[in-house]
Nucleic acid binder design. Structure first.
Length: 309
DNA sequence: AAGACGAAAGTGGTTGA
DNA sequence: TCAACAACTTTCGTCTT
């Protein structure tokens, strides 16, 4: 039996074995971020059984399964043990009975704590599943995200913050660690967490858990963006070369990696005769056209590329 | 009409006194 | 803690294809 059947959520590239597989949420295709091979097989996906075909549908679906309230985890059905050492007639309890009641009280508190952590986790993991499936994040990223989230619980970082926000931040960190980064914008759009809050939670996590995250690399975005823009693998490779050349010339320091990826894709598209508009590219890279233009002008000028119009 | 261009003002985050 | 700063965004008028 193949590895994939035993563990349907995990996918590796059949060419190079890489686990950096971008799973296109709409089309059911996947693309390897290391060698650019596109796999058109139907996916066996561990995620939700539904498919969303546009943004509205996605946001509608995203509400499915969300309970109405989490404030009382068992909706008031649990038994309470009173603090007074008296029975129902108001009589004092025997010392043996008191000792037993004391033990019971302790256990009740313990089980309540455990079940609240469990409930938190159950909700968090289903939210992570949903997010990962919409963002096309493969299993290794989900695993990393869930480890981060669990550590955040241990460190009591969730208290006073929304579970959704912390899950989203964990996913963001995990995606960067696994070198399959998503932008804050993309994650924010696919969850009910605004960008600002997401950034705050992310910074809290990396600070409190002392996680070191590699600097975002523009090339990590290129294959995915190119795929979403229906560009050929060849053009994507040319874009990667452009970014590397720019890095060698020291043009990339302090610049938004997605902006650089966008500009290099724009140039590569023109050079290779697969032109896309600045607007299209800006949209998939979640930057503005202005940024695409600025980076593109810099690159063309500094790398001495002549762009045939 | 669509795309590309660039100026100007505004925003949120980082840095350094 | 505050101000200066760089990068990016928003907005908008103009030019090019």
């Amino acid at each position: 039996m193949s590895e994939e059947l035993l563990d349907p959520g995990r996918r590796t590239c059949r060419e190079c074995g890489s686990e950096r597989i971008y799973i296109d949420p709409n089309k059911g295709h996947s693309v390897c971020q290391d060698c650019g091979i596109i796999d058109e097989d139907r996916l066996i996906d561990g995620g939700p059984e539904w498919r969303a075909f546009n943004a509205e549908e996605r946001s509608k679906r995203s509400r499915v399964g969300s309970p109405l309230t989490y404030s009382v985890h068992d909706k008031g059905l649990s038994t309470q043990i009173g603090w007074e050492d008296r029975d129902i007639f108001g009589k004092k309890l025997s010392p043996a009975m008191r000792a037993q009641i004391y033990r019971l009280r302790r256990w009740q508190v313990r089980t309540r704590v455990h079940s609240s952590v469990d409930r938190n986790l159950v909700y968090a993991m289903s939210e992570l599943d949903r997010l990962a499936s919409q963002l096309g994040l493969p299993k290794p990223v989900k695993e990393t995200a869930s480890v981060i989230y669990r550590k955040a619980i241990e460190k009591r970082l969730i208290r006073g913050r929304s579970i959704e926000a912390m899950v989203a931040a964990s996913a963001y960190a995990a995606a960067r660690i696994r070198r399959m980064p998503r932008t804050l914008d993309e994650i924010s759009r696919n969850s009910n967490v605004n960008k600002k809050e997401l950034g705050r939670c992310y910074r809290l996590i990396i600070r409190e858990l002392a996680i070191k995250i590699p600097l975002a690399d523009p090339t990590d975005y290129i294959v995915r963006f190119a795929f979403e823009l229906r560009l050929s693998g060849w053009t994507a490779q040319q874009a990667v070369k452009l970014v590397k050349a720019a890095r060698d010339k020291g043009l990339t320091a302090g610049k938004d990696p997605t902006g650089l990826a966008a500009a290099s894709i724009y140039i590569a598209g023109i050079v290779e005769g697969e032109r896309r508009t600045q607007r299209e590219i800006a949209e998939t890279a979640t930057v503005t056209e202005v940024t695409v233009r600025n980076r593109y002008k810099e690159l063309v000028q500094e790398l001495g590329i002549e762009v045939a119009i």
